[in-house]
Design a protein around this nucleic acid. Structure first.
Lengths: 195, 195
DNA sequence: TTCTAATGACACTGGACAGTGTCATTACGG
DNA sequence: CCGTAATGACACTGTCCAGTGTCATTAGAA
């Protein structure tokens, strides 16, 4: 859990970058496990192999680190499903798999939980995660007769997450395997009459 | 905000019941506004016109009050949409309106936020709220050719909440009016090809 | 080389808050 | 009417934790 061999004194540029990255990397599992309030700066520091001092001078305070962490992750999510896929079914399945994963569900939970305190963060998350997914889906459904692709894409997105994702947020089911994700995606496409 | 004229000494039976109810009633807005961790027992007590003492003797601790409050509300939600409606469209619209309301979205947020700490509560909430809605919808779609009514009902429920409800959880949109809820419900039924 | 920036180690402060103890007060039950 | 249960008032304890100060240590910059 804890990073070993911390050295005193000013770090090399490389070490400094590693530390900065580690603080963000390690913050996620910490916040996921304990929630925002119950995660102490001391825990965050120890887990990253760093002292509180460094966290405060790099990120200002706990909220600063939290925002930086979520922002970075949301951006990654938005990039992740970008290129690789070529079919609607493939894209749909990947979106299901990703959004139902433990990490993303946990992140989603955090952002929802703190939506009141960090409204901008919630908005960013929504735009980078959900909205991007919908836009990407829209590229594949633009020809549907008589309905706007954006509306169809949103309906599909709703169906791809659906009640299953609600159950994930509430923690009453486990993350689907990739093959289960494919099935969920297939069902969703089917129910909306999409090819 | 605060209840006035608190009197010392043992309360009458009626006063006692009122107090018990008030504690639960007032706990919701408190928890909604500040979240679980940042709501203090002192605030809960003052808001209900009661001292910490009474909260501790009635509910044991903060967690006890929280669980009691959510359980009662979840049960109410489950009863609420019970009888009145006779058409699928009517039921669907009422579900949309209720689940997108500020109170229910806030409650949902709370339960999601604390799903890790109160897993049983999350399960209860899911069964009493979501699952009940799905079952109720299922009564109206049992005749759909070639698909199980339960599956159709779940798909419909997914569509009734959908991306709009995600936005509500993230706090990026306001609660829909009743007429907007009707529109959302109509769209959802439409997209799934239901009458 | 010398000065400065970034850090670890570690102690410390100030505030907040859960939960308890005590006592006077009031209603209820017998 | 008397003993007891439930309460308000209020002080108190113990703990936790965010954020800061200090100093020695090390790397980079001039």
């Amino acid at each position: 859990m804890t990073i070993d061999a911390p050295r005193r004194g000013r770090p090399t540029a490389q070490q400094r970058d590693e530390r900065r990255r580690r603080m963000l990397d390690r913050a996620l599992p910490m916040f996921l496990e304990h929630g925002y309030d119950r995660t102490t700066v001391e825990q965050l520091a120890r887990s990253a192999g760093v002292t509180k001092r460094t966290i405060y001078s790099d990120y200002g305070d706990k909220a600063g680190l939290f925002v930086a962490m979520v922002s970075r992750l949301a951006a990654e999510v938005s990039d992740a499903s970008a290129s690789e896929s070529d079919t609607l079914a493939g894209l749909a399945a990947r979106i299901v798999f990703r959004t139902h994963s433990d990490d993303l569900v946990g992140l989603h939970r955090l952002v929802i939980a703190e939506a009141e305190r960090f409204p901008d963060l919630a908005r960013t998350f929504h735009e980078l995660a959900d909205q991007r997914h919908i836009e990407r889906l829209a590229h594949y459904v633009h020809d549907e007769p008589g309905r706007h692709s954006a509306a169809v894409a949103e309906a599909l997105f709703s169906q791809l997450l659906g009640a299953a994702h609600r159950r994930r947020l509430l923690g009453v089911t486990d993350a689907p395997t990739m093959s289960e994700a494919v099935d969920l995606a297939t069902d969703a496409l089917d129910k909306l009459g999409l090819t």
